[in-house]
């Protein structure tokens, strides 16, 4: 890839105020985000959130209603051809030509994407290797299993060494074993390329992406690293405490504690009691509880704050009444 003055300092993807309407229905509304070079970003949201629409606009397949989209500093509308050369795109459901053999298909795609002569053979062999397709290279695509087809789609997206890889639901319908293989492959790619993955399944994004954009109903609700998001949203999380203390004392203590909103206590083995405390407000209860145990002379064997999984954050954010509740 030759150096291009247009890309100097430009983010890999720049989306500003992007809106896409289908008739009166709004698919994407005022979405803005940027993706820097080398980032792996997940686009997370339920079906119909507008993830595929954004990817299609980025791949120059669809046109938006308004807004600006640039890839490596190039406008996707005015310089569609140049942008397409930069992108490896695997559409939703991974459509392939079932009548071709794997190698034929990849050769065709490589040529179509501008590779020539010996480079075609070299790159096709490389992606076959990379995606673990070497042993099925001579098979007809129509006869392949779902997992292999998914890998063929991935190989197609990679064959011309694109700077930006767009994957729309790359792991849909895979069994856990295949899932891990695809995930590993994406991780291995992450070192040298910019990747944007859309998914409605959280662990996939969590496992591979450095940053997550959470979409719902055409909007981006949250954008941060997976860890930060969890951090931000887990503030004020429940605390689990296991102490050896008289249950009655515990009961009155929690009832009178100013920071505890709710509590639940249940006897555990060896005379310990397991309490789950919900804080009032955003405070972290743990330091106070530790001091309390020391002061009262309770034997403390566990004091943890429950980490929210992204799943829970996602559910919280994407529940239609989430905002009202907050």
């Amino acid at each position: 890839m030759s150096a291009d003055p247009a890309q100097n300092g430009a983010p890999m993807i720049e989306v500003r105020a992007l809106t896409k309407r289908y008739g009166r229905q709004v698919a994407v509304q005022e979405v803005s985000f940027t993706v820097g070079p080398g980032e792996v970003v997940g686009l997370l949201g339920p079906n119909g959130a507008g993830k595929s629409t954004i990817l299609r606009i980025l791949a120059c397949y669809l046109t938006a209603s308004s807004g600006t989209v640039r890839v490596a500093g190039r406008d996707v509308f005015l310089e569609a051809d140049a942008v397409r050369r930069l992108i490896g795109y695997m559409p939703e459901n991974n459509p392939l030509y079932p009548d071709l053999r794997v190698r034929e298909y990849l050769r065709f795609r490589a040529r179509l994407k501008g590779l020539r002569g010996a480079a075609v053979r070299a790159r096709v062999n490389a992606v076959l290797e990379q995606c673990g397709l070497t042993e099925v290279a001579g098979k007809i695509i129509g006869t392949l299993s779902k997992g292999y087809r998914q890998r063929v789609g991935l190989a197609d997206a990679l064959v011309h060494e694109p700077r930006l890889i767009l994957l729309d639901e790359p792991t849909i319908g895979l069994d856990p074993h295949q899932l891990r293989a695809v995930r590993d492959m994406i991780r291995s790619l992450a070192r040298e390329r910019t990747i944007l993955i859309s998914s409605h399944i959280l662990p996939e994004i969590e496992a591979t992406c450095g940053r997550v954009l959470i979409m719902f109903a055409g909007r981006i609700l949250a954008a941060d690293t997976a860890a930060n998001l969890r951090q931000r949203l887990s503030a004020g999380g429940e605390v689990v405490l296991e102490v050896a203390a008289p249950p009655a004392e515990l009961q009155t203590c929690w009832e009178t504690h100013p920071d505890v909103a709710r509590f639940e206590c249940a006897p555990a083995d060896d005379g310990y009691v397991r309490c789950v405390l919900t804080p009032r407000g955003e405070t972290d209860l743990r330091p106070g509880l530790f001091a309390l145990a020391v002061e009262r002379g309770w034997r403390l064997r566990e004091l943890t704050r429950r980490q929210q999984t992204l799943e829970e954050i996602f559910l919280r954010l994407t529940r239609p009444d989430a905002e009202a509740e907050e």
Binding site: A6, A17, G67, T68, V69
Partner: peptide, 15 residues
Amino acid sequence: MNPPAPDEPSFSPAR
């Protein structure tokens, strides 16, 4: 190649 004016959006109803 003629880079577009930086302020002009890629997509707009007028375009």
